[in-house]
Amino acid sequence: MNDLERYVNRRFAKFKHNKEIQELRDEVLVNLQARIDDEMAQGKPYQAAFDLAVESLGNVDLLIEGHQEVARNRFRRGAAQLAVLYSLIPWVITIPLRFFHSGVLANTGWTLVLVITGVVYLVLLWLTRSDETTRVINVRKLRNVTKVVWVLWGIYVILSTCFTLGTWFASDIWFHRSIQMTGPYVFASFVVSVVLPFVSVFIPLYFVRVQRLVQEQEGFV
């Protein structure tokens, strides 16, 4: 194993060893070797040719499929801003629902989320004005995280809907008295408690939007 192979192996060490990465590593290695041989044939000393080749390769992270470079702080600010927006909407939606007990809980919860995201956004605005570093985002991983969030959200919605319908319509099983819709308020209260969990759709939607934010950065770095 020569210097170059050791170097390339080191740069690829942190990635999963699947066939795709292995082939990319092999391809990068022979191309760098060819570049070094070429430079040396034109009279460059080995070390200079080696340095030049390494420099031409740049950041190995970016060679891997699904990796996207973003401006670190611009991306953070963008993501935080979206978080504020995506907690503001459900907060506004749940304000009128404060007439109902479940609505008060939900609206208080979203207020809390909104305050937290707002503070994070303001702190980021204040801290990260002039730092121009970049970072690499693994788009595939982000996509998988988004998928998991959707699944968790789906499970949550199904369970909470079952629970709500169960407590209302199967009340004669639990409480030995059947459901009583005594008026429009009770009915509305029922509808609200069924619909409320769906407002949390803004959480998975946020992840989808962040994915697009990453894609929008393509070519801007």
Partner: peptide, 26 residues
């Protein structure tokens, strides 16, 4: 193969344009 492509493009551009490796692989 990869480096030959970079070299061919460099040659055809009379050394005015050097294709970067990340761009090549992408």
């Amino acid at each position: 193969y990869g480096y030959e492509i970079i070299k061919a493009i460099r040659h055809r551009s009379d050394d005015e344009y050097e294709l970067k490796e990340p761009t090549l692989y992408a």
